[in-house]
Design a protein around this nucleic acid. Structure first.
Lengths: 189, 189
DNA sequence: CTTGACAGTGAACAAATGTTTACTATAATG
DNA sequence: CATTATAGTAAACATTTGTTCACTGTCAAG
């Protein structure tokens, strides 16, 4: 089966975080001639799974990506080849790795926007949040995750929970924004 | 700055999905001797950012991973070096890439478990779901995302929405489970 | 001052790399 | 049946690879 070999290659990459060399592929695929590898690779380059830039081989985004399917309702959407979109989660979720970090959320103050206890949020360090952003902030020396709001009458910024249980937080002394929440992820089980 | 070079390397990997060769690093880092590269690489290997297995260089998980921080409340948790955990999202969210796909959710029938319209769920194709799993299923020829339940009295399986607006779905003819939802991700903005 | 560590240059080299060419067997096509 | 594409073997080869060795300048510590 042709697809077996691609699976083998993907597994190698997942494990080693690099592509194998042609000689490594010899044993990986069970070939005994490097030319067999050569031809196979070129087929994958053709299929836009790999690419070669002056002899250097690298995977394309398609190599990793999972199919992204659209609406369900009537028919199962996976079957239509042209409807397929592909997505790698790291690329999708994290725009700037060097200024991002993950934060495990505790508490129920943000359930209104679908952030629950135990969820992980992607926070991007940022100077200027937009009103309405979910921010990681320090208010009067306490760190918290809340919605960034502006009180137009009093002309100050404050923090709001996404849960009616909690009152809005107006800073007595200081409100400092550390970062903006770009995404939430939650794993089941 | 030493960290600049590591950033350059990370950017190269993000762009090309492979590590550069030593000669490529020459120009990347602005060296004029390959030995300078050699020593730098070994330093990173020492720091567990890269690793070498018989001459083959590859990034470690630490190379990619974002710091994962714990509870907020009192002090900002990023400062304590020993509390740092690292995580790459793809690895964390997707156990078996070859049997997983992504699905863009529509509708509000699962808001109770924090799955909203527009969210993306990771679905793993699977034969036998556990009771209580969120499943992608076909019930009487309609595809839907619901909670998998068992009716002990009537001894049949049915589907339940996570929203009181919607009644439980008992199959008239057929209930077929296509996959289990392993994770949800939601991007803001 | 002297010493030693550090960061980098420059050249040399064996080993491994990707590619090419020529050839074979098998299956699919008309 | 003849033909042609496909999948693979085998050997040869220039180029590039990662590594090693010897050397230089700079800076901090004793």
């Amino acid at each position: 089966m042709v697809n077996d070999r691609l699976d083998i290659l993907k597994k190698f990459f997942k494990k080693n975080r690099r592509l194998p060399s042609y000689s490594e592929m010899l044993s990986l695929f069970g070939f005994s001639s490097k030319n067999a590898v050569f031809k196979l690779i070129n087929k994958w380059v053709e299929a836009n799974l790999l690419k070669k830039i002056n002899g250097k081989l690298s995977p394309t985004s398609r190599f990793f990506a999972l199919p992204l399917l659209g609406n369900i309702k009537a028919g199962f959407p996976i079957l239509a080849e042209e409807n397929k979109n592909y997505l790698t989660l790291d690329d999708y979720l994290i725009e700037d790795p060097s200024s991002s970090f993950l934060l495990k959320v505790s508490g129920d103050s943000m359930t209104g926007v679908g952030i629950f206890d135990g969820d992980i949020v992607v926070v991007e360090k940022k100077k200027a949040p937009t009103i309405g952003d979910i921010v990681l902030a320090q208010i009067d020396r306490e760190w918290t995750l809340k919605i960034f709001r502006k009180d137009r009458r009093r002309r100050i910024n404050y923090l709001e929970a996404a849960n009616p249980k909690y009152p809005p937080l107006y800073p007595h002394q200081e409100l400092q924004i550390y970062g903006v929440v770009k995404a939430v992820i939650r794993k089941f089980n």
